[in-house]
Design a protein around this nucleic acid. Structure first.
Length: 344
DNA sequence: AAGGATAACAACCGCATCTGA
DNA sequence: CTCAGATGCGGTTGTTATCCT
């Protein structure tokens, strides 16, 4: 941890209205001040929050403290194994975009997930890679520490695919590295997890492919036919949505928040994107309409009308998606049978 | 019990982007 | 259009807690 905040204001940097700003750990008193201010006044300009709450902190520090620690909706305690699996999976898809990963894990912060990844997962992978590859000296070919499967390393036949875009420690986006990747290729890395999670081992290569593809979509909150993500944010609302739309959570326990939020759902309803027929694959929901509708952080906001980070920055995604062969991607989608993974 | 290793986590830093004047 | 401030995000650091020898 950082050094505890120096009450004397020694350990400071910058000022807030002439008052030296404190740094380091937050004291319980500071937490109280910030918490009560936020609960009373809600989020505004963080600089004002810091000033008005009587905190000798910069707004940035207040924001971080609130988001990572004080927010009432934060989930405390260790990550469940399902959450771990989801993190690993989402990381394989999103790379180090912690905020987007966190957006799919209600009550978890990007910082928490990032820390979890950098400590637990990386270590676990290191150990797994050492255990599974006696030829550890050949570390240059594949950065094994980042090739992830549930419970350890991905089976060797899948590592090739995995390694193609799960070179995660760098900030390079796996998706953007695959300009002509097909959707089914994108789905490939998931068999290990999906099989475990859904306990539906594929009977054949074909069913395996279809199953994993659909499973993955389901896992991250995607409708396999719609191709994009659905639903509400948050457990309760999502659950409700789930109920009505025949979509799934993980084993019926871990509901996965969608990649877009409530507003998107509303838009989706209007455009009949989420039709009641799960096999309705007609809409090109990878298309610009959907992405455009998801682009505004303000619209994606769930925490406040200021668009707190939980929204998604799909504008960037859109651009990157544009680098792929979208037509090809979408061509593959309808060919995937929708598997009814409803747990109920 | 002491000391080292390491896991876990809070918080800072710097940069990119957004927004409003 | 430009610029400055606010905000968001990812990387990184540093401290404490816990485990191991």
């Amino acid at each position: 941890m950082r050094k505890p905040a120096d009450p004397s204001g020694k350990n400071t940097n910058g000022t807030n209205g002439g008052v030296k700003l404190r740094k380091g750990l937050w004291s319980p008193e500071e937490d109280d001040k910030l918490m009560s201010y936020m609960l009373t006044n809600g989020q505004g300009c963080w600089t004002d929050v810091a000033r008005n709450a009587g905190l000798q902190r910069c707004g940035k520090s207040c924001r971080l403290r609130w988001i990572n620690y004080l927010r009432p909706d934060l989930k405390r305690g260790a990550l469940s194994s399902q959450e771990e699996e989801l993190i690993i999976h989402l990381h394989s898809l999103l790379g180090n975009r912690w905020s987007q990963i966190a957006a799919r894990l209600p009550g978890r912060t990007d910082n928490e997930i990032k820390n979890f990844w950098n400590s637990t997962i990386k270590k676990r992978l290191k150990h797994s890679s050492l255990a599974s590859s006696p030829n550890a000296s050949d570390s240059s070919s594949t950065d094994a520490k980042d090739v992830v499967g549930i419970g350890g390393i991905v089976p060797t036949q899948e590592q090739g695919v995995m390694a193609m875009y799960i070179n995660s420690s760098s900030s390079s986006l796996p998706l953007s590295c695959m300009p002509s990747m097909t959707l089914t290729q994108m789905m490939d890395p998931l068999p290990t997890m999906t099989n475990q999670i859904l306990e539906t081992p594929p009977a054949s290569a074909c069913s395996w492919l279809n199953a994993t593809s659909s499973c993955m979509l389901a896992q991250v909150g995607m409708d396999a036919c719609d191709g994009l993500l659905y639903g509400n944010y948050g457990m309760s609302t999502f659950g409700d949505y789930h109920h009505h739309h025949n979509n799934i959570g993980l084993q019926g326990e871990l509901s996965v928040p969608p990649l877009e939020s409530i507003v998107i759902e509303e838009i989706g309803k209007d455009e009949n994107i989420y039709g009641t027929n799960p096999n309705n694959c007609s809409g090109n929901h990878f298309g610009n309409n959907q992405f455009n509708s998801m682009n505004s952080n303000k619209h994606n906001s769930i925490d406040s009308d200021k668009g707190d980070t939980i929204g998604n920055n799909w504008e960037e995604e859109d651009i990157k998606l544009g680098e792929w062969d979208l037509e090809k991607l979408m061509k593959d989608v309808p060919s995937l049978p929708f598997l009814d993974y409803q747990v109920d």
